[in-house]
Nucleic acid binder design. Structure first.
Lengths: 203, 203
DNA sequence: ATAATATTGTGTCGATCGGTATATAATTCT
DNA sequence: AGAATTATATACCGATCGACACAATATTAT
């Protein structure tokens, strides 16, 4: 059963991808409707008919980012054999993805709605929740390392996860400032140097 | 010789401080003229007469921040006896200043102009340069530790500085997300745990 | 064919953006 | 006292903001 009425003249998924890149590069408030419609190649009525509003479009853009680029970063948590390997893979994948020349640098979830302004409070809260969710995922993976004996008893796995997430968030800033992949990888290696001291004895 | 003409009815320094706090909390583009004039308690003609433009006001706000709050953070570099002490003081002061309940959380220099948009490109470049300048200051202090024998030969002091600056920039995000002083201090301690491995052997 | 449904392009809405013109008020210089 | 100078308050500028009305167009259902 095909859709009734005049068919959509643009590819919704492709237009959403373009919108995601605009939000990624300019942020939620920095991306104007003109920026979006020009990048998506459609008129504003088509945007509103297909996505509802600028804020709803942003939510879909975030969901797309999380399920694609974001997914690559956090996939390392399930692919590695050890907790250390999970953190290492997570940071190395971050270094790679934050410095691709064909995409905006840094992380959309971290950079696109940092400030508390008038109408964007709900969206900002959702992004904060997403960041906390990621921290929780990393903490659970690290806790497995504590259960398996890889990490010494008494180590605060939640704080350990928060530390590495903090480094990754700093890497978003560094990437925005122009840091290349090699530099980001060196930052990641520096953070990984703390793994031994942080996991062998109670802090 | 007193100033001719009608005297200014507001305290310029005090108004600038209010403007700094608005930019700090909302960012350069997120802070509207209405936000600024209301916080400063003046009309827009007074603002333009005293500061020239919104962008010029922002530059003065950044300069004020750097010479006050920012100065407290980087003073640790000259106050400490060792390179380690300098980094420790720098991060601990960061944890304290990023979490004061009476001020916006995180760092104005890091958070207030992250995205590359239309007219703010010049200001953004200046903030990036300021961040690099800070990284250079830290690198020079760490290099003294290498010269004094505190740090093993062959260690890349520039990368070491960049790593700790990255952690501090991540702490700006964490502070914005609601992390309290104790949490920020634990993050700082985690980063300091890497000092031994990073300074005792060539990386 | 005709009705019903849905998208598109054009034009524009009220609100807000950063920034000023103008007139009045308050001070110093002569 | 009067002229010159500077700041303030009110009102408003054109441009842009996110969002939408409307009519024309293109499709499916009957």
């Amino acid at each position: 059963m095909a859709a009734r009425g005049r068919p959509r003249a643009f590819d919704r998924e492709q237009a959403l991808t373009r919108a995601m890149e605009v939000f990624w590069a300019k942020g939620l408030e920095g991306a104007s409707m003109t920026d979006l419609t020009e990048a998506m190649g459609i008129g504003s009525p088509s945007l509103y008919a297909a996505f509802g509003s600028k804020e709803a479009l942003f939510r879909e853009a975030v969901a797309l980012y999380v399920s694609t680029d974001g997914s690559d970063i956090w996939a390392a948590l399930t692919n590695a054999d050890t907790a250390y390997g999970a953190v290492e893979g997570f940071l190395m994948e971050t270094a790679r993805l934050f410095s691709r020349p064909d995409k905006p640098s840094g992380c959309l979830v971290v950079l696109s709605a940092l400030h508390a302004t008038d109408g964007s409070e709900a969206v900002r809260a959702e992004l904060i929740a997403k960041r906390e969710e990621n921290t929780g995922d990393l903490a659970r993976r690290i806790a497995q390392g504590l259960a398996s004996g890889e990490i010494a008893p008494g180590v605060d796995t939640g704080m350990l996860a928060r530390f590495y997430v903090t480094v990754q968030q700093g890497m978003s800033i560094q990437a925005r400032d122009g840091a290349d992949r090699a530099t980001l990888e060196k930052i990641a290696r520096s953070a990984l140097a703390a793994w031994g001291p942080l996991t062998t004895a109670r802090q």
